[in-house]
Design a protein around this nucleic acid. Structure first.
Lengths: 310, 310
DNA sequence: GTAATAGTGTCTTTCAGACAGTATGAC
DNA sequence: GTCATACTGTCTGAAAGACACTATTAC
């Protein structure tokens, strides 16, 4: 979700609100309250993500502003409800993290922009030890060499792109804190990557938060049936597959997927049929709550998620 | 780890410290600094856990004290280093959560104390809908009925015990906030469970934090090689198995465990042998870092972890 | 008929989970 | 020898991953 109460109007931002200890019994209730106040929406599934408190995450801090600590939450909202909800509007998250979307094949920017930049960055490392370490980091994050592309390493990838200078934010943040000494991690000399920014940048460290959320969700979907929070009570297997593919950012093998969720006891068919959409009518399925008792970690152990395309 | 800077001296507590935005660039660096200042320890592996901010988690709040927000972290410290480290001392976490330790079989207290209390609690539910819901919660958390005992549901179990009144903390907290209206979740009438407290209680909501940590670690160990942060660089497979069993709170099948970690590429043998400990000498193994590239989620998919004993 | 979507059957390989058994030390 | 720990071999059944194939709609 997107709220445009951002510092300057051009920047994309996540919705945020204050926490008022006097008013809200818990952090989560506080979240629900201000989301409701700002947008009229009542959140369903909500999960605490991570607490961000790095220095200068709010650029105003370098001009004497206070340190801002944000407790980030991940929440689901049905797209249909969003129209006319305050000043929030809908955004595909791959608009901000386009390299994460492999649904129509491996994104070209990975080979054309990211890999060259990573190689250049590795070459600029101070010594051979840090060069080796950097190579390993790149390999694991982006699945170079023998390594596989692992969908849930979203944050590792974003942080690498940020360090390399492929995220507009890194350029912006650097201008603001140029008086600050470099941390121990900055073992690379700075290169000029301006204009190479990938995906739409966001205010503050919001893109990092978004990356945290996507990574967490991709991981969680495997051992908890969170997908069903994103679907109506009744759905077809194709719908379920499309939602999972949107989360995973990859295509799934249709037949195996069907078998996985059906024989895995995650869903059950109702006898009913879907209204036609240009093909054979699909059966309507529903989530089998009982699976929570039967299996210790009921999720979709996404088949062939490690890179293989359909 | 245990720090005794607790409100009254009798209560067990987790170590904690203030966050000083002026001094610390990040929350994690702040953590490392005050742990060092208080105990002289330099933390190794550190992971942010969860941020706790419920009303009255600090009992002083009901007497006009401020709302305390705690960003909890999980960190590893080698036991040997702990002797004489400030006023911190070592505690087995099963001292606080004894029902979580199945290493010497199913703890008797589950059948003798917990199940009767849960059944009584379910019976006291207002209506049949909430009774059904409560039954399902108990089944899933504690593996009753057809459900399996799932080691990582530590927090769900603790919260249930707290609600049921089997945690001393719930009695204590209730006395302090008796003027407060009941939340929507309190659909059960209150029973008298005093004196039935299970495990050692802790100050504030620290036992909830501990339960969060154990649950998270049990989950994480399956898809990230965190175990090796708890072991020296060289170890025997038996040592590795013992550490994993301590985390999982369950016995693992020895032969399958060996095969799993060896053929899974998680460890590799050095030719060297261990000093004898009353049996055939064991080979010394080490962690194979390369596994991070080879497998998307390299961890120990703990074999037979779902209840089965050796 | 074609195009498009939905759904079935089956084969192979891999691996978890269990079995029993052997090897090398201390005593 | 016994006891204790370390390690090996193998069987079985359940899945993952891939194959080809049939079914029902709209046009």
């Amino acid at each position: 979700m997107h709220g445009n109460s951002s510092p300057d109007d051009k920047l994309e931002a996540l919705p945020f609100g204050p926490f008022d200890p006097a008013q809200d019994r818990t952090l989560e209730l506080g979240l629900r309250r201000w989301v409701h106040d700002q947008t009229g929406l009542d959140l369903g599934y909500v999960e605490q993500l991570y607490t961000f408190g790095d220095r200068n995450r709010d650029p105003m801090e370098s001009e004497g502003g206070p340190r801002v600590i944000s407790v980030a939450y991940l929440a689901f909202v049905r797209e249909s409800r969003l129209s006319g909800a305050g000043n929030a509007l809908w955004r595909d998250w791959y608009y901000f993290l386009p390299w994460e979307d492999w649904r129509s094949g491996r994104p070209a920017m990975i080979d054309e922009v990211i890999f060259p930049a990573l190689r250049q960055w590795v070459r600029r490392a101070r010594d051979s030890a840090s060069r080796r370490e950097s190579t390993e980091r790149c390999d694991i994050a982006f699945g170079c060499g023998e390594a596989l592309w692992t969908p849930e390493r979203v944050l590792e990838r974003y942080e690498l792109l940020y360090e390399v200078g492929l995220a507009e934010e890194s350029e912006r943040d650097n201008q603001r804190k140029k008086m600050q000494p470099l941390g121990p991690k900055a073992v690379h000399e700075r290169g000029d990557m301006s204009g190479q920014g990938l995906g739409c940048s966001m205010a503050f460290d919001y893109r990092r938060i978004l990356a945290t959320a996507l990574g967490r969700l991709r991981g969680k979907v495997k051992y908890r049936p969170v997908v069903f929070e994103l679907l109506p009570a009744a759905f077809t297997l194709s719908q379920l597959q499309r939602v999972l593919e949107a989360l995973a950012g990859a295509r799934l093998h249709k037949q195996n997927f069907r078998r996985l969720v059906e024989t895995g006891g995650l869903v059950e068919g109702t006898g009913r049929m879907d209204v036609q959409t240009g093909g054979r009518p699909a059966e309507i399925f529903r989530f089998r709550r009982e699976v929570l008792r039967e299996r210790p970690a009921p999720g979709v152990g996404l088949p062939g998620l490690a890179i293989r395309q359909i």
